[in-house]
Structures are given as structure tokens and as C-alpha cells.
Design a binder for these strands. Structure first.
Lengths: 251, 251
DNA sequence: CGCTAATTTGAGTCCGTTCAAGGGCGGTGG
DNA sequence: CCACCGCCCTTGAACGGACTCAAATTAGCG
């Protein structure tokens, strides 16, 4: 397969992890949107922290893990973006992960990842030991609740994206994608009409199940309709409502 | 919207539930494939059973719940089949649920269902109180593990179906669907080459994001290639390997 | 500044949809 | 038991959107 990615991601992150000692949730900017959010300002936070293996940075284009990585760590994206590509179909992007997202929820059940996870830009990751976490849940009832809810919400989000992308025209898919990215930014408390796509056109088109050419044409078409403005990877939503309406309308 | 479905599903299943007192997991044929499977032959089973609200039957075409139903119960399909259709796009089938599947995992996070769930044939449902279950998980460590793994696996399954359906041609989508159904049968311990589709052509085509005509043509085309045999809703896989290969090949 | 890879644009083709009509199955009532 | 009817599924023909192939332009990077 590809020869560009790190030879042994598993070993890699363990060594990389040592580059940063920072694993204090109390000092993490993400705390109030993360699994232990209910523990802020309580004396239970250190209990959760004992499951945190550490933080580390990863460069653009580097693999976080491969489809042969055994599952033992859950990753939280502190900053940056990742893409998941499938082993079976290289040209198939399974998901994107943004700041605040958990990576590995789909791997819990089979104790094995089934996709390569690649950083799209320099990113920072927090690693949580799953077995330790599972044990701690009994003492951290709120975290138990949040954890299960998080998996559920991520599942729901997948289903919704699924529905839109499956049934719509290229225009609808692209609109849905832009709104999806916008939603991610909003969740992070950033401006949601002005955005910089962290991934290239090819990645987007693969994700949408569309040819890159069709994507390109659609973007210019939406620009001409004054619904968006495109400048390379910088996209501005000029008419949010009109874009939203496109999703539910016939065509 | 449609006026055919039960006026108030929430009230409905509570009354229907009384029709059957059977809520003994120990007497359930599904036990070894269900959440409390690790508790079989232990004295912990009654603890789990205390979260089971009851069993009830539901007729073909009836709603199990609507998109306005507040989430409080998790449903386990004891027998039969269900489809989930989206509120926003009536013609969009979000998922199928088979014997052994859990219904409601996507609703946990937002405490609200977002699709109508309709029985495709006469089916039997087991209802579990989610909050009770959550409390019990501390005492039932194995169930806690299984429960989270189940959500994870269901999520993974969605992602995989998603990937195939999104990227493939109609042939690939149809092949993937047939293999998916086959997989379900296998999981249930039934013959997996010979199957009866519980849903109509329109439901399948909606699920695959394809016109009913295309689906029909594809089925006859696959028949002519001797890959399958179709007789109404009865489908036989004549060449399992060839069908599998179709998923990964270019076209 | 020049290279390479990514993106855009253009033209032609094909696949899947749409629209329309014909069959077949199951249900209902005589 | 059989005839009728409605619905679902299949088949056919024509259209259209998205893909493919090919070329030009642009961005990113040393």
C-alpha cells in the first residue's frame, strides 16, 4: 500500500507522547466540551486524569494510526483535523475529525481500528486509556453518562450526514458538507460563516462520493448564485438559509 | 404527514406491554446474543431484568414510535423487522432493524427520537428502561462493557454501509445490500444464502438512494449473470464470492 | 523563479433517472 | 373457487446529470 505513512504508528505515539508532559485536564482549553466536563472544579478530576495517557502533536500528512492498530487508546482531538480512510477502498474517506471529536469510538466493539487516521494539518491529540476509563466510569457517574451520550451523538451525526449525502444531488451534498463544516466551527465557538477547509478538494469529493470535477463545478456554480464565496480553501457562506433549504427541497 | 400511524405511540406501547407479562430474560431465546448475555446462569440476571419494562407485539405497518417520542426506553427486536424513516425527508430510510438489534441508541444523546420506526411485519419487541439500565451498569460490569461495545459496533456497521453505498454504482450498492441482509441472517444463525427480504422494493431503493426502477433492473441483471436468483421477495445468493468482490472492484 | 501537484474548465459519453406502460401478485367479495 | 381490482414490481424509451478523459490554469513549495 502507501509507503509514505509512519511505519509503526502504535510505537510512534507512545514515544511522541513523552514530548509533552501536559496531561492535566484542569489546564486544558477543551475541558468544558470534553468527557470530564462535569468534573470541572471538583476533586474527581484527578481520577479521570489517571486514564489520560498523555498529549502529543502530530504533523500534517502523518498517520495517527493504521487499520492494523489494536484498539486500546481513545483519542481526543485537541486541535487540528484528521481524516479516516478505509483499507478496502483507498479512495474512500470514512470520516473527518475536528477539534473536540473522539477518535476510536467505532473501534471499541471489535478492539481494532479499521481505517487509517491521517492528520490533515499539524494537530494535537490527547490519548485516553480505554480500559482504565471503563473502570473509572463506576466512580464517575456523570462521565459514564456523557461518554455513552457522546457515542450516541456521534452515531446520530453519522446517520444524518449519511441520509443527506446518500439521497441528494451533488449540489445538495456540497451544501450539506459546507453546513456540516460550519456546524463544527460553531460548536468550537468560532465564526461559522467564514471558514477555512482543512482538507483538499479530492478529500471532500471522496467523502461526498462525487468526482472532484463535479465538486469544483458545483462550488463555482454556488458562487455564481451568490450563495457562497470561494477563495481556494477559504469559503464564506453568503446565504445560510438558502443553503439550508437546498437540503430539504426536491432538487 | 401520514395519518395512518398510531396517534400516540408512547401511550400505545405502555398499554400493549400489558398484553404480555413475559419479561424473563432467562426464558428468552435471544439471551445469548443480547445485552445480558454474560449473565446467563448467574444470579445477576434478575438485576438486569429489573430494567426490562416488558415485551409486546406490534403489527405490520404499525409505528413503534414517532420522531416526537421522548427517549426513555431502549427497544430490542426479539423478532421481526423495522424501518426507520426520517421526518425531514419522508422518502428517506435511515436504517433497518432486525432480530437482535437495539433501537434507540442514536436517541440516547439527545433524549429524543428523530425518526419514525415502523414494523415491516408482525414483530415482537422487548423494552428496557434506559435510566434504570444506566444505574445498573455499575453492578453489572460485563453488561456495561457489552452495552458500550454494542453501540460501537452498530456505529461501525453504519459507517461501513455508508462507505459502500455512498461511493459505489447501483450494482455495488445492491450487492452490498444483499450481503448486508445475508450477514444479518448469518448472525441469527439462519441460512445466509437463502433469504426473504422483509421489505418492499421501494424501501430498499430508498435505503440505497436509488430509483426503484434501477433497483429492479439491477436485480434482473444480477440474475442473468447467475449471481443471484430472485423470486419476489425471496433471494438466493448463487455466487457469494463474486458478489463480495464487486464491492472492492472499480466497477 | 521554476517545478510539481492540485484545481478548474471543457467536451463527449454513459449511467441512472424520469416518464409511461405493461404485467403479476395478493386481497376481497361474489 | 374464481373473478375482479389495486398495488407493487418490472420493462421500455428518452432525457439529463454526473462521470470520464484531456487540457489549461493556478497554487504551493523549494
Amino acid at each position: 500500500m502507501a509507503d509514505k505513512h509512519s511505519p509503526d504508528p502504535v510505537e510512534n505515539y507512545i514515544s511522541l507522547m513523552r514530548l509533552r508532559g501536559e496531561s492535566k485536564c484542569s489546564e486544558c482549553a477543551l475541558l468544558n466540551r470534553c468527557l470530564p466536563r462535569s468534573l470541572a472544579d471538583t476533586n474527581l478530576l484527578p481520577i479521570f486524569e489517571s486514564a489520560v495517557s498523555g498529549n502529543f502533536a502530530i504533523d500534517a500528512g502523518e498517520d495517527l494510526l493504521s487499520d492494523e492498530t489494536k484498539f486500546s487508546l481513545l483519542f481526543i482531538v485537541k486541535s487540528g483535523t484528521f481524516k479516516a480512510i478505509n483499507r478496502i477502498n483507498e479512495a474512500n474517506i470514512q470520516a473527518f475529525y475536528f477539534s473536540g471529536n473522539l477518535i476510536g469510538l467505532e473501534a471499541i466493539g471489535q478492539r481494532q481500528f479499521d481505517s487509517r487516521i491521517i492528520a490533515l494539518e499539524r494537530s494535537v491529540i490527547c490519548a485516553v486509556d480505554y480500559d482504565k476509563l471503563l473502570d473509572l466510569l463506576n466512580r464517575l457517574n456523570q462521565v459514564k453518562k456523557h461518554f455513552i451520550e457522546t457515542i450516541s451523538l456521534q452515531h446520530l451525526e453519522s446517520l444524518r450526514l449519511f441520509a443527506i449525502i446518500r439521497s441528494g444531488s451533488v449540489q445538495q451534498r456540497v451544501a450539506a458538507f459546507l453546513l456540516f463544516i460550519s456546524e463544527q466551527q460553531k460548536r468550537r465557538g468560532q465564526a461559522f460563516l467564514d471558514m477555512v477547509l482543512p482538507m483538499g478538494r479530492t478529500d471532500i469529493s471522496n467523502f461526498l462520493g462525487v468526482s472532484p470535477e463535479s465538486l469544483s463545478r458545483t462550488l463555482t456554480s454556488l458562487s455564481k448564485k451568490r450563495l457562497i464565496k470561494v477563495f481556494n480553501r477559504r469559503v464564506t457562506l453568503m446565504n445560510y438559509d438558502a443553503l439550508s433549504k437546498m437540503l430539504s427541497e426536491a432538487d
